[in-house]
Design a protein around this nucleic acid. Sequence first.
DNA 1: TTGGTGTGTCAACAGTTGTTGGCCTACGGT
DNA 2: ACCGTAGGCCAACAACTGTTGACACACCAA
Lengths: 194, 194
Amino acid sequence: MTVAPTDAPRPRRSDVTRAAILGAARERFASDGYERATIRAIAADARIDPSMVMRYYGSKEGLFAAAAEFDLRLPDLTDVPPGQLGEVLIRHFLARWEGDETLAALLRTASTNPGAAERMRGIFASQLSAAVAGFGTDPATTSRRAGLVASQILGLAFTRYIVRLPPMVEMAPEELVGWVAPTLQRYLTGLPEN
Amino acid sequence: MTVAPTDAPRPRRSDVTRAAILGAARERFASDGYERATIRAIAADARIDPSMVMRYYGSKEGLFAAAAEFDLRLPDLTDVPPGQLGEVLIRHFLARWEGDETLAALLRTASTNPGAAERMRGIFASQLSAAVAGFGTDPATTSRRAGLVASQILGLAFTRYIVRLPPMVEMAPEELVGWVAPTLQRYLTGLPEN
DNA sequence: TTGGTGTGTCAACAGTTGTTGGCCTACGGT
DNA sequence: ACCGTAGGCCAACAACTGTTGACACACCAA
């Protein structure tokens, strides 16, 4: 035995094709949404036959599930000065999806596809809530604080990357940070008014 | 001549059918989004033949255009105490679409349909910007302030009514007001941090 | 009564979609 | 050199889509 006996998926010859399909799928899902992104179009982008998509990913839903794998990659917030949490978060999010269209695909699809909505719930419920809980807020309010942060973050993404409201598109990242950081900061560490 | 000679569309016998189609269309568009809401399903809900939809609204796009007619019905903000703008706005928005599913239809569709996105841009660019401009902020920042307000408002709607993030669904309107009003207030009358 | 127009149904069209099975080819271990 | 198998393409299916035209009935003015 030259390699580990179990759990050693030796590289398949088709890995490049798989990756090409996944890349094309992400692009199409991101720009067109789930329904308008046809398997034929994705296959054409990847320069392969539509039937290959089915063989490697089983179905369109399976393909989307693979393409929409998304990790917020939230940093560890415990060593962030409590007063800079908002700024760190908004900076991270802006950087995170300015270069990755997966979230746009997820955002577009979550509007109409129940499975994608469920996945989005999962991502923000687990990853974001976990990060927010990481620096020790009152557990009773943690999930609501995380939800409020999600509402502003997703609203920003929706208006800037999906609907493309002109003023939201025009603003430079630094200006957005200046406006949104205090919002997130208050959602995380502040108190509601009433 | 018994009535006004021009521009007097006397009530047609089919007005109830037209209204039934429009109501069914709004429901379907709101719950399924543009692509999944089929004309056949809408016609079935309205208990008429699919071809009637075409006759009265020309095409699916025309039907959507009619069904997605939306007015934010923003109150006049000039007589609101400047310190309560955020609270008034968030209260108004919550009340406005808790009972009207048109905005949900628009929100779902704007994710994938360019025409709907354009309409959403128009609504927020004209109606919201106009209202924000109404109480005399610096014209140079008005559109950005309006955009930021839209980002939080739409993010709230998206997480609460579309994706249905549990913490956002659970929160009572009053609690949401307490959290979000200060955000809108600062977007409208505050200064950015940097 | 009569004719025309508005209201509605039925059946079918042409195109697109996800999906399937058969077939050919070329790699790679033995 | 051989042969099993994985990678890839082609053609087709069945279902569903928006859309159209022909046809039937009911209303209403003349």
